[in-house]
Design a protein around this nucleic acid. Sequence first.
DNA 1: ATGAAAGCGCTAACAG
DNA 2: CTGTTAGCGCTTTCAT
Lengths: 318, 318
Amino acid sequence: MARAAGVSPATVSRVLNGHGTVDPSLAKRVRATTAKLGYVPNAIARGLALGTSHAVGVVVPDLANPFFPTMLKGIGLAAGTAGFRIVVAESNERIAEEVRLADELARLTDGLILCSPRMPTAALRSLVDRGIPVVCTNRVVRAPELGIVAADWITGARLLASHLADLGHRKVAFLAGPASSWSNQQRRLALSRFEGLKVEVIPAGSASADGYAALPSALETGATAIVAFNDLVALGVLGRLGELGIRVPDDISVAGFDDIPSAGFLRPPLTTLRLPLVDLGVQAWHVLQRRLDKQPPGPPVRLLPELVVRESTAPPAK
Amino acid sequence: MARAAGVSPATVSRVLNGHGTVDPSLAKRVRATTAKLGYVPNAIARGLALGTSHAVGVVVPDLANPFFPTMLKGIGLAAGTAGFRIVVAESNERIAEEVRLADELARLTDGLILCSPRMPTAALRSLVDRGIPVVCTNRVVRAPELGIVAADWITGARLLASHLADLGHRKVAFLAGPASSWSNQQRRLALSRFEGLKVEVIPAGSASADGYAALPSALETGATAIVAFNDLVALGVLGRLGELGIRVPDDISVAGFDDIPSAGFLRPPLTTLRLPLVDLGVQAWHVLQRRLDKQPPGPPVRLLPELVVRESTAPPAK
DNA sequence: ATGAAAGCGCTAACAG
DNA sequence: CTGTTAGCGCTTTCAT
């Protein structure tokens, strides 16, 4: 390339990166040549020389849950503005896979955003101790150099519990998500501790099929309302309920978490806790950027979910 | 690292990559040292030296549509087995963005998988002409070195049309997707050409909100069945219909395309055309792998969708 | 079987 | 303002 334009590689680098200063006529010649040859700098070589890939790794448990893609939009948006690209990997909710991916991405990129990670705290710490800039979303872990951006599910779940209690419910079934999920623990805890509501915890999972499968057990508890770990699980619940001819909210109330895009279009529209997901992604990027700049991550960012009351919750039947 | 183990870098490289042959005792020492230091080879430098990144880029129009994540699972699975990583980017249905991303990823990776690309054929050809291994899913473009993996929507849509006609429907409304979408064109074409079914085409889009918004126009046509561009759009339709108190399938039938994971959990469960998405992803990888090995892509792979009849379709009311 | 040396494509420091 | 030089961290001939 340099030869084709009759200049040195350094000059090419200068005009392409807008550093130093170059004689306009030379610059023009270089640009003309790059255009003619369709030349594009090799990002790998550039990364090696600069010691930075201008890419960050993002690992998510499950892309099929709209929760994560929505957050990715936010991360991608903010990172793109700063000239960074994101590399996303999916762990399929498997912890070992998650650790492996984080490790691998760390070698390849400048930093990591771990979304709702399920890995042990020690593994998380080890990443940080290796000097890798990492931010963790939806999980709070005490570690000085770890960035944290998480929802305040305790307050959020209390909002929901209080909505249900106000409606007159006294006993609710909570269809729990993955045990290793911090969000799940928080939601369960807040619900259980709420005064005036008896909550039965039924193990379910994070997918619609899990909700579908767990519904009968929830029914057996005699609860008048069902709170699902997330909207996907609630969707499965709604499906099974419809199949059984049990009406929502007349016979039983149902609520979820996350407010995925479909939540408002279901029949009945789902009452749920909305998290500003795009914003959450943007914030995660900003915290990471601070770490990339060798600055401390700053205090944990906590986002408050908003209760979205739709038609799936109502006073109990009797 | 090499010094720490008291050997040359070449030897380290040999034991880590299992190439050449090294004295077992040396190999052991190297391995011990790598373990102690927690040393991991720098993927970037490795990429430069090898001339390959062992990564492929995947660009999708919209991660929020479960269609794409599901396919990504397939690609990731197959690619991972072959020691490749995938880098995914989202174009948000914007054509210019899509072209830019493809371009950028091409510099960074060894090959490209473009999912349902909306870019002009010329742009697609330009990528191929630059010698980049690329495979295109859900779009058929004649170009010798371009790999193609696509659904046979013509046959698929005919399956659906015939199901509807057999039920007794004579007039259906098709809520069309993005005009630049090949799938949309194919589906619309096959439907329109079907004998014995009058189809009214209503512009909608690819998201639930588009279905929700377009429903009134569809109703005005007096159609007894609505076919949505995809399941997400159908979801919006179902939501609006419920809101209006119009019963499905008693008053009107609804069908979609794709069979996203929620389709079976909706009320009523949605009749739709299922594509083996994970398999589609796996196939896309295999075709790309052939190109990475400098082989021709082979003939276009066509997958036949399967009609999944659930409860959202029934004979027309009157 | 092993080490020394060259080079992947680029950028940054240093001369001129 | 521009070319020359060195080097990013690794792999791979080529000698030994």
